[in-house]
Deep mutational scan, measured.
Amino acid sequence: NKFNKEMRNAYWEILHLPNLNEEQKNAFIQSLYDDPSQSANLLAEAKKLNDAQA
């Protein structure tokens, strides 16, 4: 299933973003579980936030 793979990839990438705190990571990961079809968008948002907090 495409979403499972996308979701897993997004999950791991978000988990390893160095500039997000636990609360931010948890919020993105919760959103992933709530709507796996948004994995790519959530990952993009997480990366933007990560870069902004660098």
Rank of each mutant, 00 (worst) to 15 (best):
A52W: 13
L17Y: 05
D35F: 04
L15F: 07
Y33V: 09
F3N: 15
H16P: 03
P18G: 13
I14P: 00
F3G: 15
S37R: 09
N26M: 13
N21K: 07
E45N: 06
D34R: 08
P36W: 04
N41W: 14
Q24F: 11
M7E: 14
K5Y: 01
S37L: 10
Q30S: 08
L15D: 02
L17N: 04
D34H: 11
K5F: 00
E22D: 07
F28Q: 03
L49I: 05
N1I: 14
Q53M: 09
F3L: 15
D35K: 14
H16S: 06
K25F: 13
K47T: 02
I14K: 01
R8K: 15
D34P: 06
S31H: 15
L32S: 01
E45P: 01
E45A: 09
K2T: 01
A40H: 12
L49T: 13
A54W: 04
A44V: 06
K25A: 11
Y11N: 02
Q38W: 05
L49W: 09
N9A: 15
R8W: 15
N41E: 05
N9I: 14
N19Y: 12
F3A: 15
Y11S: 02
E45V: 09
N21P: 10
Q53G: 01
A54S: 10
E13A: 14
A40M: 13
N4R: 01
L15N: 07
P36V: 04
E23A: 12
D35N: 05
L42R: 11
K25M: 11
W12D: 03
L20H: 00
Y11W: 12
N9V: 13
A54N: 14
L20T: 00
Q38A: 06
K2D: 15
A40S: 08
N41Q: 09
D51W: 07
H16W: 04
D51Q: 12
L32Q: 03
K48Y: 13
L43K: 11
P36H: 03
A52Q: 09
Y33M: 05
N9D: 08
P36R: 02
N1T: 02
A46F: 01
L20W: 00
P18Y: 09
E23T: 06
N26G: 09
Q24V: 06
F28N: 02
A10T: 11
E22N: 13
W12P: 01
N26H: 10
N41R: 10
N9L: 14
A46H: 00
P18I: 10
A27I: 10
K2R: 10
D35R: 12
N4D: 15
N19L: 09
S39Y: 12
E6Q: 06
K2W: 15
A54K: 05
D51I: 08
N4P: 15
L20E: 00
L43P: 02
E6N: 02
L20I: 12
E6A: 11
I29W: 04
D51T: 14
Q24K: 07
Y11L: 09
N26K: 13
H16M: 05
D35S: 07
N26L: 03
E45W: 13
E23G: 05
K2N: 15
L17H: 04
K48D: 14
A52R: 11
N19R: 06
N19V: 08
F28M: 05
I29N: 02
R8T: 08
R8I: 14
K48R: 09
N41D: 14
H16K: 07
A52K: 05
N4E: 15
M7K: 00
K48I: 10
K5W: 01
P18D: 11
S31M: 07
A40Q: 10
S39V: 13
Q38D: 06
N4S: 03
K5R: 02
R8Y: 15
Y33F: 13
N41G: 08
R8L: 14
A27M: 12
L43Q: 11
Q24Y: 05
N9W: 12
N1L: 01
K5N: 01
A46D: 00
N26E: 08
E13Q: 14
A54R: 06
K25I: 05
Y11D: 01
F3D: 15
E22Q: 15
E45K: 12
P36T: 05
A52M: 10
L17D: 02
I29G: 15
K25R: 11
N21T: 10
A10M: 04
N9M: 15
S39W: 15
N50K: 04
E23R: 11
K47V: 06
D34N: 12
I14E: 00
K5G: 04
H16A: 07
W12G: 04
A27G: 06
K48P: 01
L15H: 08
I29M: 05
D34K: 10
S37I: 10
Q24I: 03
A40Y: 15
L32T: 01
K47W: 06
K2G: 15
Q24M: 06
F3E: 15
L42S: 06
K5A: 01
N19E: 10
Q30K: 14
H16R: 07
N50V: 02
E23I: 11
D51G: 08
N50T: 03
Q38E: 07
N41Y: 07
M7Y: 03
N19Q: 06
A44S: 06
K2A: 07
E13D: 10
A40R: 06
N41V: 10
N1S: 02
P18L: 09
N41L: 09
A10L: 02
S37H: 05
S31V: 06
Q38H: 04
A10K: 01
P18T: 09
A40K: 12
W12K: 02
A10I: 03
H16F: 13
E13H: 14
